[in-house]
């Protein structure tokens, strides 16, 4: 599979990274190189092989559904590039 410019632009949108139109072709070339290289995995027959979902031989533990932390709005907002009145702010989404 080879990525064309439109596909690169679509992935960039999915990843929310602005890529200038002029860079799409070169970037596509780089990504194609990597993708063609990983496609060597197609040589391996993996019929009937379970995909690994956890490398550790353990089941994830459950914990009690209790609040263990909280009331730290100031801590959490301290690093916000733009916070106001105890909230994060973002550009207007609803007109």
């Amino acid at each position: 599979m080879s990525l064309d410019k439109a596909t690169v632009a679509r992935i960039a949108t999915l990843a929310r990274i602005k890529v200038p139109e002029a860079d799409l072709e070169a970037l596509g070339h780089e990504l194609n190189q990597i993708l063609h290289w990983v496609e060597q995995l197609d040589q391996v027959d993996t019929t009937g092989v379970e995909p690994m979902t956890s490398v550790a031989a353990m089941t994830l533990p459950l914990r009690a559904d209790r609040v263990t932390d909280g009331n730290r709005a100031d801590d959490i907002l301290k690093n916000a590039p733009n916070g106001m009145h105890g909230f994060f702010t973002v550009p207007k989404v609803v007109e």
């Binding site: 596909t7 990504l31 990597i34 990983v38």
Partner: peptide, 27 residues
């Protein structure tokens, strides 16, 4: 580069060919 490759191999239509394949290889 890595975020874009990651977004691609997880995207609809390519997930099985790349990501699931890699998880089988990992096994």
């Amino acid at each position: 580069r890595r975020v874009l490759i990651g977004a691609y191999v997880l995207s609809a239509g390519y997930y099985d060919a790349y990501y699931l394949k890699a998880q089988r290889l990992r096994t």
